[in-house]
């Protein structure tokens, strides 16, 4: 009998130990040091890690341009990497230059090693310049890179107000609302509800060395022209909350939201013009109202 209890206690101890170990291992964790291997980099920041619990949001995000932030911008980024930096600026293409595009198009570039950043930049250039299998290989690599959940819900949290947000813990998932999860550490951060958060990428980008990049000018138009004229909605109000758009973030590529943002009115009158030599004539008066919170078109 004593032998039975001894074995039972050992089994119980092992079972508890295993259970505790697995729950700790299962919690989402992220490195706070540079990653040098492409496949590891992709795996660590893959949004599919979030999909198990957040399937609906993941599906929405997959439809968004955030999910294809690299492959949708090959031409412009590759031109910067292959012409702008080396030929026009006569500078070496290193991570400091690479992040001038990828800080927004691939926020996790922050955790790529210098070597890996150059490898990724190389795929951009190949995706534009190479032909055949080499081009397809580069595109398939870039398809695995994007603005992932972690890009907004962690890395970019401190992008505009580091003095207020303070230290960003790589293992915390920051959210717009209250909530807890057994899968990861969670912390509410109001910055995700503010236009201020989107502005860090959806406007003129100022790199740490002071270089400005005019990918688009939405934020300046929003702050100075929309808010200044009495506009009161946020980026999130129109591009996420309205019509349950959620994490699809539709913008200029989505005709539904484009139509919604523009109103066309027209009046027309037909008459006879030219005293004595009357000819058919028409006068059209057209009125286009931009209902968006920024200039249209932009970028």
């Amino acid at each position: 009998m004593r032998r039975f209890w001894f074995l039972f206690m050992i089994c119980l101890f092992l079972a508890l130990g295993t259970s505790m170990a697995s729950s700790s291992e299962d919690k989402l964790s992220f490195p706070d040091h540079p990653i040098d291997d492409f496949d590891t980099f992709v795996k660590v920041y893959d949004s599919r890690r979030c999909a198990e619990c957040h399937a609906e949001i993941y599906e929405e995000w997959q439809e968004s341009f955030h999910a294809r932030s690299m492959v949708s911008s090959i031409k412009g980024i590759a031109n910067f990497f292959s012409v702008g930096v080396p030929k026009e600026w006569e500078k070496k293409l290193n991570k400091q230059e690479i992040i001038k595009c990828l800080d927004c198009h691939l926020p996790q570039i922050k955790f790529a090693s210098e070597r890996l950043a150059r490898e990724i930049a190389g795929y951009m250039i190949e995706a534009k310049m190479a032909k055949g299998a080499q081009k397809q290989r580069a595109i398939s690599k870039l398809k695995q890179l994007n603005i992932s959940c972690y890009g907004c819900h962690n890395i970019k949290i401190a992008g505009t107000a580091p003095g207020i947000t303070g230290h960003i813990d790589p293992n915390v998932i920051y959210t717009a609302g209250e909530g807890e999860s057994e899968a990861h550490e969670t912390e509410e951060n109001p910055i995700l509800k503010r236009s201020f958060f989107c502005i860090q990428c959806h406007g003129v980008y100022i790199a740490p060395d002071g270089e400005s990049t005019y990918c688009n000018t939405l934020s300046g138009s929003y702050v100075h022209n929309y808010l200044g004229q009495g506009g009161r909605e946020s980026c999130q109000d129109c591009h996420m909350k309205k019509n349950n758009r959620g994490h699809r973030f539709p913008g200029g590529h989505d005709l539904e939201i484009v139509k919604e943002g523009l109103l066309l009115q027209a009046e027309a009158k037909a008459f006879r013009y030219g005293i004595g030599k009357w000819v058919p004539a028409v006068n059209v008066e057209a009125f286009i109202t931009n209902k968006a919170g920024h200039r249209t078109p932009d970028g």
Binding site: G84, T289, T296
Partner: peptide, 25 residues
């Protein structure tokens, strides 16, 4: 090129504004 541009000439539609165009032919 986004890296080349340092200024814009803004010929867009401005937020909350109505652009009026007249055609006569």
């Amino acid at each position: 090129g986004a890296w080349q541009i340092k200024e814009i000439v803004d010929l867009t539609l401005q937020p909350l504004k109505t652009q009026h165009e007249r055609f006569f032919f």
